[in-house]
């Protein structure tokens, strides 16, 4: 295995996940449950798309094949996307959206903390900037999981329905991956096992405050975002997001 490819795949995993999550948040525009939430959802989305641009810029530099961050974002097909399966899931109701955000934020925060210690200064620099934003994201999404879990009977029921819709996709946040272990050995990434432990601890604490039951660890299933094997949702998301650059490939915007 080539460590340069490992790193590239990892940059895409970080960048694509932030971009796809940001795209899902854009879909909330004008539809949030309160004006304050319009602001917050767009704010978080803006942070994430900004981070995606930083990761994809670096990925494009390492690729050095003439493609830039926009090309990576808007011209790659779903089989080439490396985002977490979790973030491509549809928004559903506000319970699904906030639980998805929380699972992602809890993973994201630990991942970035590890990256801040990376021997690659570029990785560490991008991560340090993102970490400030994601600390805020996690605080906010944890609070919402708690509010909705420990709110009314209806909000509790909706959270109970949201959990099984998303839980199986949390396996990829905690399952070890050979490439990540190699990157960890090379001093580039945090120990994936540590990220997994910290994620589980955060989820356990917040679920307990939210009076929500913690399901059994999810088992392996066929899909694997690391190999570009996505759910059926990503293709449609990309079709919308990429429509203009695909229709006018020579255009400057």
């Amino acid at each position: 295995m080539n460590p340069a490819n490992d790193l590239l795949d990892h940059l895409l995993r970080l960048g694509d996940s932030a971009l796809v999550q940001g795209q899902r948040l854009c879909e909330w525009c004008g539809r949030a449950p309160a004006l304050e939430e319009e602001l917050a959802l767009m704010n978080v989305g803006l942070d994430l798309v900004g981070q995606a641009r930083n990761w994809l810029d670096y990925a494009a530099e390492r690729l050095a094949d003439g493609r830039d961050a926009d090309h990576l974002a808007f011209r790659r097909d779903e089989r080439a996307y490396r985002n977490l399966l979790l973030v491509e899931q549809p928004n559903g109701d506000f319970a699904v959206t906030m639980l998805k955000q929380f699972f992602y934020d809890a993973w994201h925060l630990e991942t970035l903390k590890g990256l801040c210690q990376s021997s690659d200064p570029r990785l560490a620099g991008i991560a340090a900037k993102a970490l400030k934003e994601v600390t805020y994201h996690l605080r906010r999404s944890s609070e919402w999981v708690e509010r909705l879990g420990d709110g009314t009977e209806e909000s509790h029921q909706r959270m109970l329905l949201a959990i099984p819709r998303l839980w199986r996709f949390t396996r990829e946040l905690t399952a070890p991956d050979a490439a990540e272990s190699r990157l960890h050995q090379a001093g580039l990434l945090a120990d994936p096992a540590q990220v997994a432990d910290a994620w589980q601890a955060t989820v356990a604490t917040v679920f307990s405050h939210a009076t929500l039951p913690l399901p059994e660890a999810p088992s392996h299933f066929y899909l694997d975002a690391r190999k570009g094997l996505h759910t059926e949702h990503l293709g449609l998301l990309l079709a919308q997001m990429q429509s203009l650059p695909r229709a006018y490939p020579d255009a400057v915007w």
Binding site: E27, Q240, L244, W253
Partner: peptide, 27 residues
């Protein structure tokens, strides 16, 4: 809302960021 109609289809990352920032300002 009229801008939300295009925020998912903004053609570059820069344009998407600008539009998101603008929508956030409006809220």
């Amino acid at each position: 809302l009229p801008e939300g109609n295009w925020v998912t289809r903004a053609p570059t990352l820069k344009r998407k960021l600008q539009l998101m920032a603008k929508i956030q300002d409006e809220a």
